[in-house]
Design a protein around this nucleic acid. Structure first.
Ligand SMILES: [Zn+2]
Ligand SMILES: [Zn+2]
Ligand SMILES: [Zn+2]
Ligand SMILES: [Zn+2]
Lengths: 138, 138
DNA sequence: AATAATTTGACGACGAATCGCAAATTCATG
DNA sequence: CATGAATTTGCGATTCGTCGTCAAATTATT
């Protein structure tokens, strides 16, 4: 019984094979995927699952804090595996891999912002794009 | 003839009353609005315009670099008035006002990131949330 | 195995966004 | 200002992502 199963069990939800499979895709891929893409990947593996269930499971995982969403420019919603603590995502433009990074230097940024235009920073959303260590070598 | 009209004229597009009205809403509001919201605001002013035209005009303004988009979590797309040069948005959580801010401190952030996990930063997307100077006083 | 609670899949509803085409508007030209 | 070509607009239909309903299936418990 893994971490997600324990969280589900603690909240009176069932830890089903179906849910574990959706979570497994996110754990393996580590990049932003739409519900549709996840569904297709599971079907390609010979697993029978409905698109509705994929949506519901993703919503559940986001609620548990183990998945994060991002609104794409075309209106689609993408999901990615995620840890609970506050962090940001560095997205590789070559392979799509998502790495988590902290946000230490933002403290100084917030101070400058308040001094400059009186804006009191409460929160921030950052996405970083570039090349992951593997792809940068090639 | 304003700045947007000139840009349109230079690209063989017509500077129409309709387009100017959509741009005017963005200029006045300075916050993220959906195409639907913009359409309703224009209709409320007694202006007859189709939702299709609002969508097409917004797409055009984004292409001109005077509007920016953001994918919302529910799949909608929001638009905001924007200058061409690189910058980020500080969004007031009380009134929704969007202010533009630079990203000077990010240079150090990029250096630390490369040293820490080998990620080569090429670009970034940042959204800041908090209270604008007006709302912070109350 | 029996039971109760939860989840799943199939289907349809809903809304955002887009497309095609005829009518209207814009703009250059005379 | 009148004319005509080019572009834009509005309308309706269409596509597509997402979510709701409900009976059937699955899960956990005894
Ligand atoms: Zn994350
Ligand atoms: Zn990579
Ligand atoms: Zn404010
Ligand atoms: Zn920047």
């Amino acid at each position: 019984m893994n971490e997600i199963s324990e969280q589900l069990h603690g909240k009176g939800r069932y830890a089903t094979r179906t849910r574990e499979r959706v979570a497994q895709v996110l754990r393996e891929e580590r990049r932003y995927l739409t519900a549709h893409a996840i569904h297709e990947m599971l079907v390609a593996r010979g697993i029978s699952i409905s698109l509705s269930t994929v949506y519901r499971t993703l919503e559940l995982l986001v609620g548990l804090g183990v998945a994060a969403t991002r609104g794409e420019e075309n209106g689609e919603i993408s999901y990615v595996f995620c840890t609970v603590q506050h962090h940001h995502h560095a997205v590789c433009r070559t392979c799509g891999r998502v790495e988590e990074v902290g946000c230490g230097p933002l403290a100084r940024f917030a101070r400058d912002l308040r001094a400059g235009q009186g804006f009191e920073l409460e929160d921030h959303a950052i996405e970083l794009y570039g090349r992951c260590s593997d792809c940068a070598k090639r």
